[in-house]
């Protein structure tokens, strides 16, 4: 079996093409997810349950009072809606990969990812999807629309600002997620960190103003879940000026750069699960 044109000829060839790699990864991730048909429907059911579980306490609170930290029921719905949207993206596209990478580091598949001539961060972040979580995105839209029905529809500017903030918030959360992965290179057992991240991110479902000073800063900068939930809602309500929006986006870009830098460093000290 002659290697066509000798080995050198091959390694100097065109190399992996990004669109091709991405579509191959997406195809495999989807096939993997659809292996378990039952899971697809159970996830849908779980997702709907989640929406109810988030709205119920809010309904109980607003059953007793009209305003919480300056937010009405309709306005809080916007926060919940954006929170659900972020959960859908994180749960559908990001978190399944967290599990896969942590598992891969423990069992050695990470070695094989690192051996591929494709950016390891890209492969590590795109090996799994949970399509059923995307249903949550749909319910998120419904909840946002419900909230806007009460508060009145904003103009083009606030909607654009909210949309950009939502993207920035999700990107900031992804960066945080990547930092957790970096930790797992040193402390192999980080399952609890996933649990923690989920628990802290849960705090983003309420308007960030209910938290006292330190906690509010924490939820905006350290675990920037408020950036993805409260801030877009504030943008829709016209409570943010343009400078703040730009700052938030700059901060999340900075977070992304930092996360990528940490990832590169983590790879350098990777010890590889001994066989």
């Amino acid at each position: 079996m002659p290697p066509a044109g000798g080995p050198e000829a091959l390694s100097s060839g065109p190399g992996p093409r990004l669109p091709e790699v991405l579509s191959a990864l997406a195809r495999v991730a989807l096939m993997n997810a659809l292996q378990y048909r039952a899971s697809f429907f159970v996830d849908f059911f779980v997702g709907s349950g989640n929406v109810v579980a988030i709205l119920l306490p809010l309904a109980v609170v607003f059953g007793k009072t009209d305003s919480v930290a300056g937010w009405t029921w309709d306005q809080s719905l916007l926060v919940t809606g954006f929170f659900l949207m972020m959960s859908a993206v994180m749960g559908g596209l990001v978190e399944p990969n967290l599990g896969a990478v942590v598992e891969g580091i423990r069992q050695g598949q990470m070695d094989y990812i690192l051996l591929k001539p494709v950016d390891a961060q890209l492969v590590a972040s795109a090996q799994r999807v949970a399509p059923a979580k995307l249903w949550d995105g749909l319910s998120a839209l419904v909840v946002i629309a419900w909230g806007l029905h009460g508060t009145g529809w904003p103009g083009f500017g606030p909607i654009t600002a909210a949309f950009c903030l939502m993207i920035a918030g999700v990107m900031a959360m992804y960066s945080l997620w990547l930092l957790v992965i970096c930790l797992s290179f040193w402390f192999v057992r980080v399952d609890n960190l996933r649990y923690l991240l989920g628990a802290v991110a849960d705090a983003g479902r309420w308007p960030v103003d209910i938290y006292s000073g330190v906690a509010r800063v924490f939820l905006t900068v350290v675990v920037p879940v408020a950036l993805a939930s409260s801030w877009p809602a504030m943008a829709l309500l016209g409570r943010l000026d343009l400078a703040l929006v730009v700052q938030a986006i700059a901060v999340s870009l900075g977070g992304f750069a930092f996360a990528r830098w940490s990832w590169k460093r983590a790879l350098a000290s990777y010890t590889s699960a001994s066989s």
Partner: peptide
Amino acid sequence: LSATLPLVMLALWDAA
């Protein structure tokens, strides 16, 4: 840190 979820609920009820 993950033991603190009830505190998140506390913040909501506190504000309410």
